[in-house]
Amino acid sequence: MIKLIGILIILIGFMLKLDTIAVVLVAGIVTGLVGGLGFTEILSTLGQAFIDNRYMTIFLLTLPVIGILERNGLRERAAFLIKKIHSMTAGKVLIIYVLIREVAAALSLRLGGHVQFIRPLILPMAQGAAESKYGELNEEQIEHLKGYSASAENYGNFYGQNIFIASGGVLLIVGTLSELGIEVTPLAVSKAAIPSAIAAFLVATVQYYLLDKKLARLSTNKQTEKEVE
């Protein structure tokens, strides 16, 4: 049981909103120590795994181009385009994005990313759609829009990716089951991912439909406040 202390440290650290990186490091070291590893062994495991997983931080490469495009009015242009389409709502922008993202993920197209797509394209589009409907948005409306826009990327990415036959998730399932003595084909696994992907799209659609209602409600509140003033 004492080996679970790392999980406890993480839970407490996150709850107290302590520095995330320090909390993770402390949890790792303490877990290693109670697990009987030497301090040098802990440092070397930590360092080696950090090097092996550099691919997780490869989005660094996309930062300069996104920054340069933002400097040159990328978001302004996206907002301009969306303002021209009158029937579009913020919710519909996100529904369309989840659909595109899921299909792209299923085809193993990496057509997404919070830094690459949500910040420069989708959020300004959703915001532009909402602004064309409610005028200048208040802080609360923008805050909600940001959260929902980020979620569209995650829904599309997570629930679409396993439909691709050679995705990491599918290969992990095949490999893990094989170690347990069960043989399955990647094709069978990827087909089995389709019902969950459809379900995720439907649930996301309902949520974004409700987002439009929420934006309308928050907007009415703002006007009422103004009248009171």
Binding site: K3, A27, G28, T31, G35, T45, D52, N53
Partner: peptide, 16 residues
């Protein structure tokens, strides 16, 4: 993310 992957490696090594 990368640091969490490293944490996972430590958890494995410790038998969590």
């Amino acid at each position: 993310p990368q640091l969490l992957a490293a944490l996972g490696a430590l958890f494995n090594a410790a038998g969590v």
